[in-house]
Each structure stands twice: as C-alpha cells, then as structure tokens.
Design a protein around this nucleic acid. Structure first.
Lengths: 239, 239
DNA sequence: TCAATAGTGTCTTTGAGACACTATCCG
DNA sequence: CGGATAGTGTCTCAAAGACACTATTGA
C-alpha cells in the first residue's frame, strides 16, 4: 500500500516492470510522420514498434523517455508530453508490463537516425500508411496518440513544435490541415492567426513560383502564458 | 527493454513499485468535496492522503483503482478516468514508486465510508478548505485533478456523474458554478442545456419556498454518442 | 398583497465561415 | 499580358452574453 503500515517491506509485493514508450511525430515534406523501430527479437520479432524501454530507478519518467528515445533512435531535443499509461494484463507476453506512453514532437530537420542493437531498422512512417500490424498493443497506443495530437492542436500551440525556426503562414495552415485532416479557409486562417498575436514578423521572404512569401517566427513568450484556442470545429474532442 | 533481446530476463532490471491513487470527488450540499484518508503509519504518519495502493500482478490499472477505492474507503460504483502518472524520483521515501492517478466521480448519496487498517480516518473535505499539508506529492496530484475536472466539464457530460437520479436545471447550474468557480447566467444556462437535448423531463416537481421546480433526468443514451460542449469561456484550459 | 424562487424572451455583440477581391512575382 | 502563389476585405449567420420580463408557489 502506498498508505503502507509501519512494517512495510518493499519486497513484499511482486512488482510489474515499468517502461516508457514514446510516440514521435514530425513533418516530412509537409506530411505527418511517426517514428517506428523494427524489433530484432522475440516477442513480435520483425514487427514494427513504438520505441521505448525500461525505466531506471534513479530517473524520472520524462528523463527515461528522453534517454530511451536517444538510445533507440538517436532523436534528441524534443517536445515531450505524457500521453497515457497502458497497463492491461497480458499486453506483454514476457511479464507484467506497465507502460507510460509519451508523445514527442520534433522538427523534421536533420535528426540523425540511429539503429540500436535491439532493432533491425528505424524508420519514419507517414501516418496515413502505417504498417498493418504493430508489436504489443502499439496500434492502440498510436491511435490514441494521434487522437490526442489532433485534439490538442485546437487549443494549444503544439503545432509550432513541428515547424522550423521561420515559416510562412500558409505552411502553418498546411500543418493544421494535415493533422486535422480537413481543408481550412485561407482568409479565416490569416485572420485567426493574426488575432492570436503569436507570431513575430521577420524581415525574411521566401521566393517561389508566384508572389514571395513573408516568413514569421513563433513568439515563445506568448506560447506558455497565453492559451491559444484555434477551434474551427467543436466536435473533435479527445475522449 | 520493451524491445528486448532474445535472452530477456525479467529479473535483470530492478523494478519500481506501482501504485494507483484515486482522487474522488462528490457534491455534498452543493459543494464539491474530495475524499482523503489519514495515514496511520510512517511515512507521513497522521497526514491526509489520497487513497490508493499497490497493484496486483493480475489486475488491470482500472481494476486496481476500483479495488483500492473500495478496500480503503468503502466507496463503490464510481465513474473512473485515468488522470496522470506521477513518477518523480524520491516522491516516496520508502522506495521508488510510480503512481498512476485516477479521478473518480461519485453521487453523494449514501456512500458508506469505511476506515481500513491503514488509516485512522476517512473524510470528505470541501475543495475550498483542504488540509494544509498532504502526504507525498498529493497536493500536486489533487491540484492537477481539480484542473482537469474543471476543464473537462466544459466539453463533456462529466458533471452529470455527480448528480442524483433526478435534479432541477438550476441545481445543475449550481454544480457548474461550483466547479468552474464563476457565476453563470440563468437564462443562458437554460437555453444551452435545453438545446443540447441531454435531459429528459420527468413528471416530478420539487416544492420549496417559491415556485416549485421541475425535475429532470439525464439521458444516458445521448451521453456517450453526443459530445457536449458547454463552453462559456475559452481560456480555462487543461494544460 | 409581497417575497421568493422558477423559468422565458429578446436585443446586442462577437466571431466563424464563405468567398470575392487585390498584390506581386515570373515568364 | 496570364498563370501562379500570397495576402486582404467584407457579408452573412449563428451563438454567447446581458438583462428584462413573466410564472407560480406560500405566507
């Protein structure tokens, strides 16, 4: 018992294993992708899985998530947020495993992928074309993560974690469209994002085929203190 | 590693303890209350704590939450929802403890409180007058639970879990006011709740000092399939 | 009758959504 | 000039909020 009695004995109870799993999202050429590792060993040998691993006794859950992420995939410097804890009996055939799942958002850029000796491969998958079967209950974990991501976009500045340092407003709109999976009106998007006063104009422009576009920077200061509600639909709610 | 290698050995890693803690809310005479237990033993002997305890190897997290809740407090038949997992190093002086926290909502009614041998007392506290110090990091857990509860009220039918079978619309309004901690307009509340079509009229009336009031029942069917967005303010968002 | 509580109606303001318009580049 | 992309203006409609009004009871 956490409310234990005086003669508490830490070894009295059999203990489950605790892991952290990290669902990592990024944008690659404007498409939302998720990072998976291919398992080298039993169980689920050869299947793709969400990266993760056992926690150490002297690190917090979030530290464990960062460490595992780097060890298994080489990805660093991510935005991390706890998602949910999965603890069904039998979700891991080896032993009882409680898994604390995290969402990570990274800027595409040049994350240097690395394969650990636990895996045969590490790869970004577009969320629209995921492998058919995933190891463990990772299909559920992934679905849950996607749902949460979509829902949080509408009322947080999470999407900015996926963008490079400077970006155009229409690029930002494109991300929202990707993740929400619906078309947004250009004019309304401009209005809404300007009103929110979350962006800072830079002197930079980017040239393309038509009219050059202004580049903006995300105002870090507003990010945390001011909540950003970006709600075009009221019916997409994270259960 | 969850992505373990072929010669995985379940005993290779030292394992943390895993507990579930349950923050239980109810309404008592229209005030929001939370249930705490007073610890009989070290550590934090004599301090109030959120009820909880170690999970068994053969039960899911939610099952564990229900079991602990009943064992420690006698409370049953609750609405349960996972809140967050707390895992800071040193949050429990005995050993490394990962705690999966749940929120529970119960109808006041006649929950028969019971004191387990782990505790010297079990008591409902109004959320506005909580004990100064709580055991472990339970003040944080509780604050987090309250934040979540407030936020979810605005876009779910959670509040109905706190109400008796039949109730008046103004009672419902009162709950919202309690939990959101702001006054709501009577007319607007009537409009909004009627439009949502979540209530079913009963033939019952309740007499009081002035005009008698109609009693309503919550339409279970609408509860799950239809999302209820009850948003008067956009700025109260659960981080 | 009045005090007390329940419940309705209505005006104003805000903001989302649709969509047409203007701007600036290249060729 | 026209095609392509960037960015603005404006109308409409629905819903939130403020608030005044009516209804029904007991004393």
């Amino acid at each position: 018992m956490q409310t234990a009695n005086g003669n508490y004995d830490a070894t009295r109870y059999e203990r489950p294993s605790v892991t952290v799993d990290v669902v990592i999202f990024t944008l690659i050429s404007q498409q939302l992708h998720v990072l998976l590792v291919q398992r080298r060993h039993w169980p689920f040998e050869g299947l793709w899985a969400i990266p993760g691993g056992f926690i150490n006794m002297d690190e917090s859950l979030e530290d464990a998530a960062r460490r595992e992420l780097e060890e298994e995939t080489g990805v660093r410097d991510v935005y991390l947020e706890q998602l949910y804890t999965f603890g069904a009996v039998g979700r891991d055939p080896r032993t009882r495993v409680i898994s604390v799942a995290y969402i990570a958002l990274v800027r595409d850029d040049q994350q240097q992928l690395r394969v650990s000796d636990e895996s045969t491969d590490v790869q970004w998958f577009p969320v629209r074309t995921l492998p058919d079967a995933l190891a463990f209950d990772h299909d559920q974990v992934l679905a849950y993560a996607l749902g949460r991501l979509r829902s949080k976009l509408e009322y947080t500045t999470l999407a900015f974690q996926l963008l490079p340092e400077v970006f155009s407003i229409l690029e930002l709109k494109h991300i929202y469209e990707q993740i929400l999976d619906e078309k947004l009106d250009k004019g309304n998007f401009y209005r809404k994002i300007k009103e929110a006063d979350l962006l800072e104009e830079t002197p930079l422009m980017r040239e393309g085929r038509g009219r050059p576009t202004r580049l903006w920077r995300f105002r870090q200061d507003r990010a945390t203190d001011k909540q950003f509600v970006f709600r075009w639909r009221e019916d997409r709610i994270d259960k």
